[in-house]
């Protein structure tokens, strides 16, 4: 079954084609990776899938239904949830409260303006569960801005998970991390992918991680998909070596 299908997606800013006739599909339960040099249009692709910007041309289908041009907030409610390249948190709040706000939204309590925000046991259990699974329980009362960089990225993903996604999009989950943290993050992504029965699409520069966990890898260069396949295919693809790997080595 196909979770996400993109057909002939195009977007340009001025004369710059950031997405050029991109087509791809992601099967249910897959871990799919997108790699490509900086400025290849990876984040812009994410922004279009999540409804943050609309494509100029082309269509996006989610579980067989067209979602092109939907609001991001509606897409989140249908299960398309993203995490960010730079952890996007409520920095003055505690770790717990960061999840709490997401949980309020998930349980549809966000319009309630008269009851105590901490009254609901369901919401509390929901947050505690996510905290525990992502190993943040001990830091529940720490303010988000006091966390280490690695923990901030984990919290960013935790907020996304609180929304119980079907399709989780991760924008460079290991960006700016130490080698140790990268290994942990890779394990974490694999673990939550299985436990929460997700379909995961991620953008990444860390090749060890990409080749380690992705079922399918796509290469995006200057807005165009130039290759698609498993780790071996990509590593041996001459076009990729020329356009991408060569670029990185330089």
């Amino acid at each position: 079954m196909t979770t996400l299908e993109i057909k002939n997606l195009s977007k340009h800013f001025g004369g710059l084609h950031v997405s050029n006739d991109i087509s791809m599909s992601i099967k249910k339960g897959e871990i799919a990776a997108i790699i490509g040099p900086n400025g290849a249009g990876k984040t812009t692709l994410f922004n279009q899938i999540t409804g943050y910007i609309s494509p100029d041309n082309g269509k996006i289908f989610y579980k067989g239904e067209e979602i092109t041009g939907s609001n991001p907030e509606k897409l989140v409610k249908t299960g398309i949830v993203r995490a960010f390249q730079v952890a996007s948190l409520f920095y003055d709040e505690t770790v717990y409260n960061n999840l709490h706000l997401a949980a309020l939204s998930y349980h549809g309590k966000n319009w309630n303006f008269f009851s105590n925000r901490h009254a609901s046991r369901d919401i509390e259990d929901h947050c505690r569960f996510i905290l525990e699974r992502l190993g943040l329980s001990k830091k529940a009362e720490v303010k988000a801005f006091e966390l280490s960089h690695g923990d901030q990225k984990v919290l960013d993903i935790a907020i996304a998970l609180t929304m119980k996604p079907t399709l989780l999009l991760l924008d460079e989950p290991t960006a700016g991390m130490s080698p140790d943290e990268r290994v942990k993050m890779t394990r974490l992504i694999k673990a939550i992918h299985e436990e929460f029965e997700l379909t995961t699409l991620f953008v990444e520069h860390d090749m060890d991680m990409v080749f380690g966990i992705a079922d399918i890898i796509r290469v995006l260069v200057r807005g165009e998909l130039i290759a698609e396949g498993n780790a071996a295919d990509i590593q041996n693809n001459p076009a990729v070596i020329e356009a991408y790997l060569g670029y990185e080595v330089l």
């Binding site: 907030e73 709040e93 709490h100 939204s105 998930y106 309630n112 303006f113």
Partner: peptide, 21 residues
């Protein structure tokens, strides 16, 4: 209230509020 919580979230990071639905 929960609604108050959302307002605080909007003040701190409205983008994230959008992406929590």
């Amino acid at each position: 209230s929960p609604f108050g919580s959302v307002l605080e979230g909007i003040r701190q990071n409205s983008l994230r509020v959008t992406f929590t639905g």
